[in-house]
């Protein structure tokens, strides 16, 4: 006869087995869709590049990782800093940062405007904000090209008004890439801030006014701290895809304003250097992770008072 302890132990083990079975689908997806591919990318970054792309399997080398930041002179084999890569890396981080700041400055008032409309008006405004999402990103980017190119709307209008005599070169500069990214990523900033702002109790705002806070005081001390979770979420949602942007810099920046995404694509395409592409991908991921951790920690500290 089994004792009570044995029965309890048996039930406990059965329970654990059952849990594994139930979580198996999720675990399988996580393995095949996330961990697996990542492991392959990591593995490739440590292999020798093949002559026509691909890698030479199971021949390991650190060349790819050296090449991320350094380049070997083709004549005397000396190593020097890979200026081109650093420029692209810096441009990616800087443009993504500017995009995040610009979408925040534009998105915050937009979200505030929408959340202060009447109930059914809000739905209309949200619908309008999300319309660009339904359009293919390539088409959206070409639309932006139509705006900023030399014969485009901006230059035509400025010339017609007599502000400028010859077209200002915007296309194929960092400005074109920045405008394109702000346009494409703006909804990703507006929506999370709106979600936070909609939950804001406007009696808090009245209480602020009642306690001698001016409009600016209420914004700074009450509204911004209370919608901080939305600001954090929006910034993350804009910064991460901006850092890996590919289509926008390709169409609007051309060869002169490349970003990390284009550099990585180049290695897997014309460059035929898969290990370097893999190493650059991992580098991008590490940058994103560090930036995220720093940002979230910083935001948590200044918003620490918003706890339970």
């Amino acid at each position: 006869m089994a004792t009570a302890d044995e029965i309890a132990e048996h039930a406990r083990l059965a329970d654990i087995r059952q849990r594994w079975w139930l979580s198996a689908p999720a675990l399988i997806i996580i393995f095949f869709a996330a961990i697996g591919p990542l492991a392959i990318v990591l593995l490739y970054s440590f292999m020798v590049k093949g002559d026509y792309g691909d890698v030479k399997y199971w021949q390991f080398s650190l060349d790819a990782w050296t090449n991320v930041l350094l380049e070997r002179d083709i004549f005397d084999e000396t190593l020097s800093i890979a200026d081109a890569h650093l420029v692209i890396l810096w441009r990616s981080v800087w443009l993504s940062f500017l995009t995040t700041v610009a979408t925040l400055l534009l998105g915050f008032p937009t979200a505030f405007f929408i959340s202060t409309r009447s109930e059914h008006r809000r739905d209309l405004w949200l619908f309008l904000i999300t319309i660009p999402f339904w359009t293919n990103i390539l088409i959206r980017t070409f639309a932006m090209q139509e705006v900023v190119r030399n014969e485009g709307i901006v230059n035509s209008v400025l010339m017609a008004l007599g502000v400028i005599n010859s077209p200002v070169q915007i296309m194929f500069t960092d400005w074109a890439v920045l405008f394109g990214m702000i346009y494409v990523y703006l909804p990703l900033m507006v929506l999370p801030i709106y979600a936070s702002m909609e939950k804001l109790d406007f009696r808090m705002v009245e209480a602020g006014y009642d306690l001698y806070a001016t409009r600016l005081g209420v914004l700074r001390r009450i509204i911004i701290p209370l919608v901080k979770p939305g600001i954090i979420a929006g910034s993350i949602l804009v910064f991460i895809p901006a850092l890996g942007a590919y289509v926008i810099p390709r169409v609007l920046g051309g060869g002169k304003s490349m970003m990390l995404g284009n550099l990585i694509e180049l290695q897997f395409g014309q460059g035929r250097n898969w290990p370097l592409g893999a190493a650059l991908s991992i580098t991008l991921m590490v940058i994103v992770t560090i930036a995220l951790l720093a940002y979230v920690r910083n935001a948590m500290r200044s918003g620490a008072s918003h706890g339970h």
Partner: peptide, 24 residues
């Protein structure tokens, strides 16, 4: 405007600021 009146209000649901301490 309310911030220029030497008049203060106790709200029905109190409207205390959740991101501040009692003293704040």
């Amino acid at each position: 405007p309310p911030y220029k009146r030497p008049v203060n209000t106790v709200f029905q649901n109190y409207a205390l600021f959740p991101h501040m301490t009692v003293a704040q």
